[in-house]
Design a protein around this nucleic acid. Structure first.
Lengths: 339, 339
DNA sequence: CTGTTAGCGCCTTCAC
DNA sequence: GTGAAGGCGCTAACAG
């Protein structure tokens, strides 16, 4: 009854073979005009549409991509996804959300989709290879499994990467603060399970250390990337005897939280202490004070990763296997010369 | 060669029929233990995995959902998606991103996926039915097409809805400001193409009007939901002769932008003018001043919509066809009594 | 240019 | 409890 019409119904109605229907609908130029018109008219009249599942099944492709992220609730992601979705849509691909906040088993779920054909490739932004993928690092030659592009993995893995140059970004942040005359630094850093935060941390630490101002261990405080962790971290710093004059937070959320907490405690930002963020989220330009930060090309990043992945899938991959995108220093009001 | 093993390979290896392999792998209890073990061992040894594409094709289902949003870059979305993704994953579904910022043709793209079987259902958060869906409003009885759940559509459509009670939310915002003694109001509103902003606008306007303080047309200024539009709108308000003492912005981004612009112009918030936002994004509790806003249960909203959609698909839909979720007034520092 | 035919990988009757 | 066979909707040979 309510069954969808199939190619056979159209063929019958247009009085041609099913092959001609297929041709008329997928490669119109390969068919005589009159046939084509008949087919198209017949298809329209019964509301026929090619069955993508059947097509994909036969092609052995799904034209779908999985994007693995560690926590999609992070306000960092919308623009990253936008870049991916746009590139994907333009090239006829579809984007599946893979949030691994549900634990390692959700990783396997998504990797399983790759292996089982639900998706053709995967963009990983979870800092390492997901559970279930045989580690390509251990492979001598090149990676053989399903197409993967890594966005924030360690160098060395033999899979294509499109990354942010976090080490340089950390360095740039440090240089900015050094230039302002700061000498006592702290970092509120993201989880060091992720290589991007490790690089950010090291880039900053290395730079201030080689300027002669290493950061004592008690001024490196980990945070959970949320506003509240920024507050908590600031609290912790406040209780130290050697309060820093400049704080580098690994994202804007924590920077904002820190600024908030410092203000509540009677310290003025930037007069008493400078605070830097990372990401350049929308609000960083509108808070009071506005937040000095490292801007990430989030949308371009997503688009580049997506492009690389699709190129992999299509076998048209062009060039650089480890692409590095720069972060840009945006100087605003939350940092000031150390008086 | 590198071809994936099929069920036939396993059958041959385990020396059973393909039917038994299928049974052993999908309903283990329907097969003798010894057979099962042989099959499983054989499958493992050659790295066999059932082909989801084939299964889905045969079942005529994809276990995929599309989420249509008007602009995924809106920081409002991450938590909404989180709710959807979680619910979907737990029930074995997959979530496709559908960003319609690419124009109406991208809508048709995604609707086409529904019709062609790439996805089983659709959650629409674009304020109206997407291009390509026959309008169910015009249908006498009930909607017949593919399962859809609407998140911010007008009432009256004969499809299931899980909405925010925007009228009441607008009303609550108005009451809060009236209670503080304000009498001259302005709104920075979202595009009135979307029924949620219309409801928000009307709820607020109706309430202040029936209290005897209608809003003149020049104090209703539209905004594009971004921080910058908040600034622009504030600028516009500043140039009016009858500056309001209280501004209701339809989201936190614009509220923040407005606050920023007002401050730049030498007005103090809330001393000179109160500003309210909407959404309760992460930063609303940490800016200075912190932002009074209407909190939306974004994650629960997504989860509820997703649940309803899956219930539709599975034919197990339970109850309410038009579910309303409340917004909650969060009073913070950006609103104060009118002096 | 068009029609016929043989599968793609799997599940599900239907026999045995 | 198990095997054989048909077919889901489509496309890609291969003939005509």
């Amino acid at each position: 009854m309510g069954n969808r019409p199939t190619i056979r119904d159209v063929a019958k109605l247009a009085d041609v073979s099913i092959a001609s229907v297929s041709r008329a609908l997928t490669r119109p130029e390969s068919v005589k005009e009159k046939t084509r018109d008949r087919v198209i008219e017949a298809a329209r009249s019964i509301g026929f549409q090619l069955n993508r599942q059947a097509i994909d099944f036969r092609r052995g492709r799904s034209d779908a991509l999985i994007v693995l992220v560690s926590d999609i609730a992070n306000p960092f992601y919308p623009e990253f996804f936008k870049g991916i979705e746009k590139e994907a849509r333009e090239r006829g691909f579809t984007v599946l959300i893979g949030d691994t906040a549900g634990g390692p088993q959700s990783e396997s779920t998504y990797v399983g989709m790759l292996a089982s054909g639900k998706a053709d490739g995967l963009i990983s932004n979870i800092g390492r290879l997901p559970q279930g993928i045989p580690s390509p690092v251990e492979i001598e030659d090149s990676y053989q499994g399903p197409p993967i592009v890594a966005c924030n993995h360690d160098a060395g893995a033999k899979i294509p990467m499109v990354r942010i140059d976090n080490y340089s970004a950390g360095k740039a942040a440090a240089e900015h603060l050094l230039q302002l005359g700061h000498r006592r630094f702290a970092q509120i850093h993201g989880s060091l399970e992720f290589s991007d935060f490790r690089a950010r941390l090291t880039g900053f630490s290395d730079t201030v250390a080689s300027a002669g101002f290493p950061i004592p261990a008690n001024l490196l405080v980990p945070g959970g990337l949320r506003v509240q962790s920024g507050r908590d971290a600031a609290e912790k710093l406040l209780s130290q005897t050697d309060m820093p004059t400049a704080i580098f937070a690994h994202n804007d959320e924590m920077a904002l939280g820190a600024i908030h907490q410092l203000s509540l405690s009677g310290l003025r930002v930037p007069a008493d202490v400078s605070v830097m963020g990372f990401d350049d989220l929308s609000y960083a330009s509108a808070t009071m004070p506005t937040i000095t930060t490292m801007r990430l090309p989030r949308e371009a990043w997503g688009a580049a990763a997506c492009k690389k992945l699709i190129d992999q899938i299509l076998g048209t991959d062009s060039g650089v296997h480890d692409q590095m995108l720069p972060a840009e220093l945006i100087v605003r009001e939350s940092t000031a010369p150390h008086s």
